[in-house]
């Protein structure tokens, strides 16, 4: 019995339709991911705006009197921006395909800008309130293959941040992404792209792969944190 040749064509059409279905499902997921990231980013921007407003009011109400409130707000913000960073990474990984999605490039750029804004507010708060904590760690890295130890260093800093979320504020600055603030900070701390990964702990820069023990030692040179007791 001869098989109708149309079967082969129908099977091809069904296969393409099934692929189309997966493509649509993935596009919906991508859309959901992007919406959620946009929402999180908006929340972060709102928090930044409200902190800016609060700082502005504090200048004539007396900055030092409002230190407690500002510190609390910054602590809360630190968690929000850290969560956004993690979501950005995991969603980018989930939406990765043959071609890269430009949405994540834009989001990362905005994320770095927000981090730098947060950094400036944090440093200002530390000066005004004469506070030593949280310890500021700036982490300069590159996603390109040129930076062989960046993945290792990211792992170490994530570990430290998990251990002492309240006492340490880690700022991850991707040097592959063109942000003026990053360039300014690199110039200020004398960091070149060839020396990455570099970690700046309260102004002191260490370049090259540094393990957890070394970084904690560096942190504990200045501050007596819970982290230093273990």
């Amino acid at each position: 019995m001869e098989i109708d040749k149309n079967f082969f064509i129908i099977a091809g059409i069904i296969t393409l339709a099934l692929f189309g279905l997966i493509y649509v499902a993935n596009s919906l997921l991508d859309y959901q991911r992007e919406s959620k990231l946009n929402d999180l980013r908006d929340e972060v921007i709102d928090e930044l705006e409200s902190m800016k407003a609060f700082t502005a009011i504090s200048t004539f109400l007396g900055e030092e009197e409002n230190c407690d409130i500002l510190q609390k707000q910054l602590k809360y913000f630190d968690k929000s921006i850290w969560d956004l960073g993690l979501k950005l990474d995991s969603y980018e990984e989930a939406s990765r395909n043959i071609f890269s999605n430009p949405f994540y490039e834009k989001q990362k750029k905005r994320f770095i800008v927000n981090q730098i804004l947060y950094l400036s507010m944090l440093e200002k708060m530390k000066q005004t309130c004469k506070s030593e904590t949280p310890v500021t760690i700036l982490y300069f890295y590159a996603n390109s293959k040129d930076c062989k130890n960046c993945d290792d260093q990211s792992f170490v800093l994530t570990d430290i941040n998990k251990d002492s979320d309240e006492e340490v504020a880690v700022f991850s600055l991707d040097t592959d992404i063109d942000v003026v603030g990053t360039e300014v900070l690199m110039d200020y701390y004398n960091i070149s792209k060839d020396s990455l990964p570099c970690t700046t702990i309260d102004g002191n820069t260490i370049c090259g792969l540094t393990d957890k023990k070394e970084i904690i030692k560096e942190i504990c040179k200045k501050e007596n944190l819970t982290l230093c007791l273990s």
Binding site: N26, L29, Q32, R33, K36, K87, S90, Y91, E93, A94, S95, R96, D152, F155, V156, T158, D159, K162, D163, L209, D211, K212, K213
Partner: peptide, 21 residues
């Protein structure tokens, strides 16, 4: 690099948006 601190990195990510690629 972290003194073999395995426990600190164990977490369950149940966000379907992170799981489904």
């Amino acid at each position: 690099l972290t003194g073999f601190n395995f426990l600190s990195h164990i977490e369950f990510n149940l966000d379907p948006l992170s799981i489904f690629s």
